[in-house]
Amino acid sequence: MSSLGGALVIVLTVEVLARLDVLPSRYLPPPSVVLTRLFEAMAEPVFWQATAMTVIGWFLSLTIATLVAVPLGVLLGTSELAHRATRPIVEFLRPVPSVALIPLVFLLFRPGSMDGKVFLAAFAATWPLLIQVIYGVRAINPIQLATARSFQIGRVRSFFRVVIPAATPYLATGLRIASSVALILTVTGEIIMGAPGIGLEINRAREGGDVPLMYAYVIVGGVLGVVLNLLFAALERKVLHWHVSQRSARR
């Protein structure tokens, strides 16, 4: 509640300052004007089409990142040889800013296509998820594996009964981070590459001089991020109800 109160104070302050022309209303319109424009836009099909295209792009990029990062992370986490052999490559590619690949995306994909923004977002989302999975697999207590072997549990059963449950909290954290990164890069790709979605509508509103509509779509992007984060947090609490972090959070 305190965070909502703080946000409300900021909104009211901006409203008053914009109304008094302390802030340039041409570039920073009052929040009430932005919200009014948002409700007007919600009555138009373009708004829902743009939102749907952004959500689809986010979903595809996060799915691709998951399909790449999880198996690869398990492999690099369980095999010391594979981990050492690929560590320089991972450490080199991981810090590369995804926006630096935009010129390459323009060369590989047709301008304005969804493929470009999905590639960009998937590349960015893969790394935090990959690192979390690797750390999760490598953080398993050797005593747990030794106990499984003492009970003559085979490698396959040990993997599913010991490795996967122990790495799941790391996987859940990685998915939440990757989800946010994927959404950010999806909207960024739409703005820069002209792909359909919220980012493209932000650009169109800016070029058309409709500043309230531009901020309205920015708010939609922020709301999407909050909603997706809450969904992943709720899913994490449900799946990891047995984990100590969730039990302590409920106290």
Rank of each mutant, 00 (worst) to 15 (best):
M1D: 09
L4F: 14
G5F: 13
A7K: 06
L8C: 12
L8Y: 08
V9N: 03
T13D: 02
V16C: 00
A18C: 00
V22W: 14
S25Q: 07
S25L: 03
L28V: 11
P29D: 02
P29E: 01
P29M: 05
P31F: 01
V34H: 08
L35S: 03
R37N: 12
R37W: 03
T54K: 07
T54P: 12
W58D: 03
S61P: 02
I64W: 06
A69L: 09
A69Q: 08
V70T: 11
V70N: 08
P71R: 06
L75H: 05
G77N: 02
T78H: 10
E80I: 12
R84I: 07
I89V: 15
E91M: 13
L93H: 10
R94G: 10
A100L: 09
L104P: 06
F109E: 06
G112H: 05
G112N: 03
K117Q: 12
A124M: 08
T126W: 00
W127T: 10
V133P: 02
A139G: 15
I143P: 01
A146Y: 09
R149Q: 14
F151L: 15
Q152T: 13
I153Y: 01
S158P: 06
S158M: 12
F160E: 04
V162M: 09
V163M: 06
A167N: 04
L171W: 07
L183F: 07
L185V: 00
T186L: 09
G189W: 05
E190V: 10
G194Q: 01
P196K: 07
I202A: 06
R206Q: 13
Y217Q: 05
V226R: 04
V227G: 09
V227P: 06
L228P: 11
L231R: 07
F232E: 03
F232G: 02
L235T: 13
E236V: 00
L240G: 05
R247G: 02
S248F: 12
R250N: 11
